[in-house]
Nucleic acid binder design. Structure first.
Length: 848
RNA sequence: GCGGAAGUGGCGGAAUUGGCAGACGCGCUAGCCUCAGGAGCUAGUGGGGGCAACCCCAUGAAGGUUCGAGUCCUUUCUUCCGCACCA
């Protein structure tokens, strides 16, 4: 008798896996590959159960695929640059490098104690110079292709973190990290031209059939493509000055009774100077610009406008309409100016009502002209044009292309496509990131650092003041440099890159993590990529997942990869809640995996986290559930232990030779093969890991019930005396059927509870490790039921059931229904009225 | 406002294609085994009725299609998530 001691199993098998390099892999074109990846971790110090759930999901997939014969790449690494480490350094003086390395060491230990099957030899951290060197290399390639550029722009600024934020990092008007309301600043910044790929990123979402619809929708909304036209309104009395507006409703242009500029529009300053009272004009514009951006954009801020006193000519009506500055017009969307059509746009309508501007109806449902009197709100539906000159009577759909074409031939407009997506600002005024490899020379301008001088390493010494200027600017030996072109004294760029640059291509590096000639060998990436299974939090639906798709296309256009989409399948795992809240240090509700490991071992934790709910769902952590999983594993252990004690020693090879099975034996075999099928499809096709576990639990229950009924006496008799009385199993058929069931069970359990499964496998007398074993083979013939139960209906209600062959058809049924009525004796002798067969399967018999 | 997902026992959740609703687990109840049990095993556990075999009701609500609906259709309510003055 061997008790279940999970902590000892954990230790033994983890050591074995390490010493045999069990999960290290190499390119092998003769085998199908499977690249299984979990989003790598920010080394915050401690992984809690919420993080760990993701790694276990990936590990179940990786271990299953390995047993299914795939060459599985399952690597892990560290997203090691970032603000928290630097903020901690400001606070406690510990250098980010030191704290980050120590956090990594601790978290790596946690993952190893969970038995996650990573190829640790491929591990790297993004703060390794050997990694960020290639960020810099790629930056320079992008600079050469015009995909990285520098411009002055108003940017999102977080006053708490003292840094710039990308648009994607502004959440509800606040910093994505600390929630502080974001301010606007004008700074010289580096940008990545992600908009060059806007169309492709949008259209190709259609090819991502194994991504959650939710994520695709979010990406589509984020890119925000809208088709429309740009139309130029010339300033009255100054045809050289033109206001270009963007509209998606050129069909309503005859109703455009004024024009609005966003406060950031370049023309605003000029008009202010020409204005009669330019001082007060400028002051008012300034109040708009200072309004909280979030409130302005969300509509909480009241609509306000300033009449510039100027007029512009509507190119279709030739009418002079007033030009206003409006606080709700966005300077960075479209052209930063709009034609206002108050009758057909709610915002324009409210604005016109407030400032008493004319409202002219130009589209109606029935094509009859209508007055705007009594209108309560704008009519934004398509319809028939009225009061629109030669276009009157046309539908909106027909009018739009014609009017756009007219504007084009007249030279004052053109059809165009606008995106909500902006170029990605990547400059950060912080220390703990990849230095941007650029040099500013008085004579030669912006000069990239030559490739042979990469990496531009972070100087070790830097002052962490949190002042908001770049810490690197305080390190003279870093800043002072000679121009690579002319050799004269020059100045280094002192900003670092957004850490999302690091995470946008790390999955390629895993294919070839030590390459010192290139970011990766294209041949290795060609073999391993794209990632077959990628899992992580849904919070990255926009940021990381859109940047990575962008980088894949950049590498493609550099000729280094031959695909566009880096992740074939995406699984967004749900969070683990404690007391209804997301786990976080500040809330004090963190469940530490290590304490669970000490109590129950790694496998109970792994199994519970997989069993409690489907992977995508949020779950509430309960200790009781974990105990349940532990009980299950102990139950399996006792089952196998008992089996070995009583009959397992008999060397019966396989169940194939089983003949003349009793009904109970047949039933057990059927259950075994049903379970193989269910577990396999649940994992591979549906990622329903919770039901895969419950299928195995059913099989165990069945095995207990079976054993209790046979001569073995069953595993519930635990004393030596009982075992003696139980004797040994004599019936060969029983031995082979049970052995088949137990071996299949252990193999399928291996991805979920690898340490326990290895221990059981060894107990059964196998000499090779289970992780090198193959997946159990499903036999459809065994799993098929000989008969099925079919409901019999009388007057539309089920009145009984009969047993029939599953593929029995119409005529057979009429006889069978009556012949087999023993199951439902009260139906004997009834006349069959109707037999319902669906897709060749009998589903119901209707009796008169 | 727009878009997406979802509403099933005391709880987490099952239910391939429309075919025995509530698998599996947690919790609870009883029994067995034990010096003891917080271990283990067995049985029970949606609601209502019946001594019983059985019967009736039940998947947010109301209709509909169908021999048959948690699943499909229509209407409606609720919750969660994402986007949101994007012209």
């Amino acid at each position: 008798m061997a008790d279940y001691k999970p902590q000892e199993l954990d230790k033994k098998w983890q050591q074995r896996w390490t010493s045999t390099r069990a999960f290290e892999v190499a390119v092998d074109p003769s085998r199908p590959k499977y690249y299984c990846l979990e989003m790598f971790a920010y080394p915050s110090g401690h992984a809690h159960v919420g993080h760990v759930r993701n790694y276990i999901i990936g590990d179940v997939m990786a271990r299953t695929k390995r047993m299914r014969g795939y060459n599985v790449l399952h690597p892990f690494g560290w997203d090691a640059f970032g603000l928290p480490a630097e903020n901690a350094a400001i606070k406690n003086g510990i250098h980010p490098e030191v704290s980050t390395r120590s956090n990594i060491a601790h978290m790596k230990g946690q993952l190893q104690r969970l038995g996650i099957s990573y190829a640790w030899e491929r591990e790297f951290a993004t703060c390794d110079p050997t990694y960020y060197k290639w960020n810099q290399w790629l930056f320079i390639r992008m600079f050469e292709k015009g995909l990285a550029y520098r411009r002055k722009s108003s940017v999102n600024w977080c006053p708490k973190d003292n840094t710039v934020l990308a648009n994607e990092q502004v959440v509800d008007g606040g910093c994505w990290r600390c929630g502080t309301p974001v301010e606007t600043r004008d700074l010289e910044q580096w940008f990545f031209r992600i908009t060059a790929y806007a169309d492709e990123l949008l259209d190709d979402t259609a090819t991502l059939t194994k991504w959650p619809e939710k994520v695709l929708t979010m990406q589509r909304n984020w890119i925000g493509r809208s088709e429309g036209a740009k139309v130029k309104f010339a300033l009255e009395g100054d045809s050289a000055t033109q206001i270009e507006v963007f509209t998606t409703r050129i069909d309503t242009i005859y109703g455009s009774t004024f024009v609005m500029l966003g406060p950031e529009h370049p023309l605003v300053r000029e008009l202010a100077e020409r204005s009669r009272d330019s001082a007060s004009f400028r002051a008012q514009v300034q109040t708009f610009r200072l309004q909280d951006r979030a409130a302005r954009v969300s509509g909480e801020q009241e609509k306000q406008g300033i009449d510039t006193g100027f007029k512009a000519i509507n190119p279709f009506t030739k009418e002079a309409v007033p030009v206003w500055v409006a606080n709700f017009v966005l300077g960075d969307y479209g052209t930063g100016a709009v034609m206002a059509v108050p009758a057909h746009d709610q915002r324009d309508f409210e604005f016109a009502r407030k400032y008493n501007l004319p409202i002219r109806v130009v589209v109606t449902e029935d094509g009859k002209p209508r007055s705007s009197d009594g209108m309560a709100e704008a009519a934004d539906a398509y319809g028939l044009l009225v009061n629109s000159g030669e276009y009157s009577g046309l539908s909106s759909e027909t009018a739009q292309p014609r009017m756009t074409a007219y504007a084009n031939t007249q030279g004052f407009g053109a059809g165009t496509v606008q995106y909500r997506l902006k170029d990605w600002g990547i400059s950060r005024q912080r220390y703990w990131g990849t230095p941007i490899p650029m040099i500013y020379c008085e004579k030669d301008g912006i000069v990239p650092v030559p490739d042979d001088q990469l990496p531009v390493e972070l100087p070790k010494v830097a002052e962490f003041t949190g002042r908001g200027d770049s810490p690197l600017a305080q390190v003279p030996e870093f800043v002072k440099v000679r121009c690579p072109k002319c050799g004269e004294p020059a100045r280094r760029e002192t900003d670092t890159m957004d850490t999302f640059v690091d995470s946008s291509w790390y999955f390629y590096r895993f294919a070839d993590p030590t390459n010192d000639k290139l970011p990766f060998d294209p041949a290795a990436v060609k073999y391993w990529l794209p990632v077959d299974f990628y899992s992580g939090g849904v919070e990255h639906a926009i940021l990381h997942l859109i940047y990575s798709r962008f980088f894949a296309r950049v590498f493609r256009d550099l000729g280094m990869v031959d695909h566009s989409e880096p992740f074939t399948q995406l699984l967004t795992q749900g969070m683990v809640l404690k007391d209804g809240n997301v786990m976080s240090k500040s809330k004090g509700n963190v469940v530490d995996p290590d304490s669970m490991l000490q109590k129950y071992g790694a496998d109970a934790l792994r199994l519970y986290v997989m069993f409690v709910a489907p992977p995508e769902k949020e779950v509430e952590w309960t200790d009781a559930g974990l105990e349940g999983s532990f009980r299950f594993l102990a139950r399996v252990w006792r089952l196998v232990d008992h089996w070995v004690e009583t009959a397992g020693g008999e060397g019966i090879e396989s169940a194939d030779s089983c003949e003349d099975l009793t009904p109970a034996e047949k039933q057990l075999r059927r259950k075994t093969h049903e379970t193989i099928q269910r577990v396999t499809t649940d994992i591979e096709q549906r990622q329903q890991l919770n039901t895969a576990v419950s299928a195995m639990m059913e099989l165990v229950n069945e095995l207990y019930a079976f054993s209790e009924q046979t001569v073995t006496g069953g595993p519930s008799r635990r004393t030596d005396e009982d075992l003696e009385h139980a004797g040994s199993v004599e019936r060969t058929q029983t031995i082979c059927v049970v052995r088949e069931a137990i071996e299949a069970l252990i193999r399928m359990l291996a991805p979920f509870a690898p340490h326990t499964a290895e221990g059981l496998w060894e107990m059964l007398g196998h000499e090779t490790d289970l992780q090198a074993a193959t997946w159990p083979v499903f036999d459809a013939d065994v799993a098929r039921a000989e008969t099925i139960e079919v409901p019999v209906q009388v007057n539309g209600k089920v009145r009984g059931r009969i047993m029939v062959a599953p593929d029995a058809a119409d005529e057979d049924m009429r006889q069978l229904a009556l012949a087999e009525a023993s199951v439902a004796p009260h139906l004997a002798g009834k006349t069959v009225k109707k037999v319902v067969v669906v897709k060749g399967r009998l589903v119901s018999v209707v009796v008169a």
